[in-house]
Lab assay of single mutants.
Amino acid sequence: KFNKELSVAGREIVTLPNLNDPQKKAFIFSLWDDPSQSANLLAEAKKLNDAQAPK
């Protein structure tokens, strides 16, 4: 279960257009550290992506 959630969340995070590479890497490392938090980490990444969207 975690492997699928981890890969789905990881793929989504790397495609978020408004995150820079260090931010993406930080989220990916957090996913590896605790795969059970993949849904929460993906939600946080999406929030940050939205907040950094060009206005």
Rank of each mutant, 00 (worst) to 15 (best):
S30P: 06
K25N: 12
K1M: 14
F2V: 13
K1F: 12
K55E: 10
R11A: 12
F27R: 00
K1P: 12
L42N: 02
A45V: 00
K55I: 11
D50F: 06
N3T: 13
L42D: 01
K24D: 02
K4L: 07
P54L: 08
L6T: 08
A45Q: 00
P17C: 10
A39W: 05
D50P: 02
S7M: 15
A9V: 15
L16K: 01
D50H: 07
S38R: 05
T15H: 11
F2P: 11
A45G: 02
Q52W: 04
A26W: 13
F29L: 14
P17W: 00
D21E: 12
L48D: 02
E12F: 15
S36K: 08
F27G: 01
N18S: 02
L6A: 14
S36E: 08
N3D: 14
K46F: 03
S36H: 05
A9I: 15
D50Y: 05
Q52N: 05
I13V: 03
A43F: 06
F27A: 00
D34M: 03
L42H: 02
N20Y: 10
A53G: 09
K25P: 06
L42Q: 03
A39G: 08
E5H: 08
W32V: 06
V8Y: 10
D50Q: 10
N40F: 10
L6N: 04
D50K: 08
L6I: 10
A9Q: 05
F29R: 14
N18F: 14
P22Q: 14
F27Y: 07
A26V: 05
E12D: 06
Q37H: 05
G10R: 12
N40T: 13
P22V: 15
E5P: 08
P22R: 14
A39P: 05
S38V: 15
A43D: 08
N40Y: 10
G10E: 15
K47F: 07
F2E: 12
P35L: 03
V14W: 12
D21A: 09
P17V: 06
L19H: 01
N3F: 14
L42W: 03
E44T: 06
N18G: 01
K47Y: 06
A43E: 10
N49W: 01
S7W: 15
N3V: 11
L16Y: 05
L42M: 05
L31W: 03
P54M: 07
K25G: 08
A51Y: 11
L48I: 06
S30H: 13
K47N: 06
Q23V: 02
S7N: 09
S38M: 15
G10I: 15
L42I: 09
K47C: 11
L6P: 04
F2N: 09
A26Q: 12
F2C: 15
I13R: 00
S30D: 13
P17Y: 00
A51S: 13
L31P: 03
E44N: 05
N49P: 00
P35D: 05
T15L: 14
E12W: 11
K46T: 05
I28S: 02
D34E: 06
K25R: 10
A43C: 09
S36W: 04
F27L: 06
K46W: 03
L6G: 04
A51D: 09
N40M: 12
F2S: 11
E12Q: 11
L42K: 01
K24Y: 01
I28D: 07
R11E: 10
N3Q: 12
W32S: 05
F27I: 03
Q52C: 10
K46A: 04
K47Q: 09
R11P: 02
Q37K: 09
F29C: 15
Q52G: 04
A51W: 07
L42A: 03
S36L: 07
G10Y: 15
E44Y: 04
L41Y: 03
L41N: 01
A53S: 11
D21H: 08
I13C: 04
P22A: 14
N20F: 06
E5Y: 06
K46Y: 06
W32Y: 12
Q37E: 10
L16I: 01
K47H: 08
